[in-house]
Design a protein around this nucleic acid. Structure first.
Lengths: 351, 351
DNA sequence: CTGAAAGCGCTAACAG
DNA sequence: CTGTTAGCGCTTTCAG
């Protein structure tokens, strides 16, 4: 391939408009202090020549790179892609992230990182050195990782932490999982359920805890006992099945179960069916995440829908705004999740 | 945000190793002609300081940008994301593309482009000027677009065209849709079907035509008439339903239908059910694409599975290899699709 | 308000 | 084999 050079540079524009490079730069960057007439003339040349600044050169000149890095968990992301189960967390992130970046002239670059790895710092530092992104979006389970957070802080890069409330630097965004779990629980309480089981996710995800808390709080508010109704999974189908088996084997089994993600809920549905339990007649089910598959389940599952696209869009907006360094954002930004009522929840059987 | 500078540059390494910048550059780029001892010394400094070259600077220096651009159809991509139906074309592309890029130290950047737009050239030129990618991956329906192809050729950027056989520059990769459609048809012929309907996709996608051809050829090979058994859709659920309705309303309706994508097949399944037709007893169904949802359909659908990840991985490999400009790749590269036999196909009813 | 100069980190030439 | 010299395209100083 031939060595390529920028087709039309700021020089060409400057020559065409008969002004200095500097003036063109000012117009391009919308800096104040350029006379309207001059500005129009330069803009005309830009349009005429189809000039677009090179981000590499912009970056070299010491300004922004117009790149935002999204850090996703390598293992989980690849596993989801390979499994082809329709999990669309990643897609929703792209939907919110890419489009919002584009609106501001930024690009989103995804980087898969291994949270458990001990050379995570090296990996991240390498990505930062290579790309010099203007911002970083941390997704679970990276969002609370102190190694990552401190490193980013030290580098002076603005970053957003999706789904983490852990104290520390960075813009925090959450989907109010606690409230969401409470809403799910309340929905079941209203349907007359008194024994509502909960299958939690792994503790490594902060949101696992929040969801448990929301359920606990709602149970307490309804004066219902929760103690023996908690089981823990790791978001996998198998773990969900085991957790469901545990709950259904209780002396006084639940008539409704909330599971912390779709896979585990589906596993519960499967197990219930095998045991001859009809959903929702014998057992009501509420899921978390609202991944595509659960709409196609039989029956379609009632679920808490995560506003991932919206949260990611917000993250991008806040990162970009953060650059123009006003007062730092310290309070967590909350985006509400909603309960999609479908057909896996129904009135509790009378005893 | 504070103005950031590269933490450790080639200068630091040069100083630390006590050599010139150039020598460091040679080691970093694995150029030949550096004495082993020198090389080791420089490498030691690089590791010690954790030096990673800035791609912006590398690009400015006139070398590669280590960026590969994937061009996807804006409208369809966003629609798929919003629909949350589990379509994972995009994910599979990332799986193959991102991971392969990473293996070579490249990054994949996704750009959504409007094929129908008249300013597509401006958009593309802008993306190229801004990013200066080393390569571009074209996905349907861009892959055959002459505007795009010629522009890329003129820019001297190596690019891969996934799913296009249109003559012209660029590395062509296909999944052998013709063969795939033939395989699907043969499968049905073997099951005793003689009336096999086909629902084609829109002509704007080259693969629509290939699939029809494969079906036609296989029908002819089995001495079966195909003429009245072709219906056309546009990949949407509604169009699939209409096409299916047309086929089922024939005087001599098909006992098996192959539809060119999952949505249309699902629409056909739905319509069949409404009309009291049992799949596969009364009607066999073969789908194309093998998106997650069809595994969850009732019954799970037999389908042609597209090796999207593999094709994209190949595309990246070939683009990167193309740089070291050997003889250009002119023949289309083929990756085979496979038939996933599930439960929507069965023996034809005896008449 | 505008221009001229210097440099960002790196690589391609050319020397030695 | 290694070092030196120019830029790449842009933005920051700082002058006018």
């Amino acid at each position: 391939m031939a060595r390529r050079r920028q087709a039309v540079t700021i020089k060409h524009v400057a020559a065409d408009a008969g002004v200095s490079l500097q003036t063109v730069s000012r117009v391009v960057n919308k800096e104040s202090g350029v006379r309207p007439g001059m500005m129009a003339r330069v803009q005309a040349s830009i349009d005429k020549l189809g000039y677009v600044p090179s981000i590499a050169a912009q970056r070299m000149g010491g300004s922004r790179s117009y790149l935002i890095l999204a850090l996703n968990d390598r293992e989980r992301t690849i596993a989801d892609w390979r499994a082809r189960q329709g999990t669309d967390w990643f897609d929703q992130m792209m939907l919110g992230g890419m489009l919002t970046c584009a609106e501001h002239g930024y690009r989103l670059i995804v980087e898969l990182v291994d949270t458990h790895s001990d050379h995570i710092e090296r990996e991240l530092l390498a990505a930062i050195a290579a790309l010099q992104p203007d911002g970083v979006i941390l997704t679970p389970p990276h969002s609370g990782n102190p190694l990552i957070i401190n490193l980013l802080e030290a580098q002076g890069i603005s970053f957003a932490r999706i789904g983490s409330l852990t104290e520390g630097p960075g813009i925090r965004l959450i989907m109010d999982d606690t409230r969401a779990a409470a809403i799910a629980t309340e929905h079941l309480v209203e349907l007359g359920h008194t024994r509502i089981g909960f299958i939690a996710g792994p503790a490594e995800y902060e949101l696992s805890t929040w969801r448990v808390e929301g359920w606990r709080a709602a149970m307490a508010a309804a004066a219902l006992a929760a103690d023996d109704l908690l089981a823990v999974g790791d978001f996998s189908h198998a773990s969900g099945r085991a957790a469901a088996a545990h709950l259904l084997a209780l002396r006084d089994p639940p008539t409704a179960i909330i599971a912390s993600n779709d896979q585990m809920t589906l596993a519960t549905l499967e197990l219930a069916r095998e045991r001859g339990l009809v959903v929702p007649d014998d057992l009501s089910l509420v899921s978390f995440d609202d991944t595509p598959i659960i709409r196609l389940a039989h029956p379609p599952l009632t679920a808490i829908s995560q506003p991932i696209a919206e949260v990611t869009a917000q993250a991008v907006n806040l990162i970009i705004a953060d650059r123009s360094s006003g007062p730092a954002i310290t309070m967590p930004v909350t985006v509400l999740a909603s309960l999609m009522i479908r057909h896996s929840t129904g009135r509790a059987r009378r005893l």
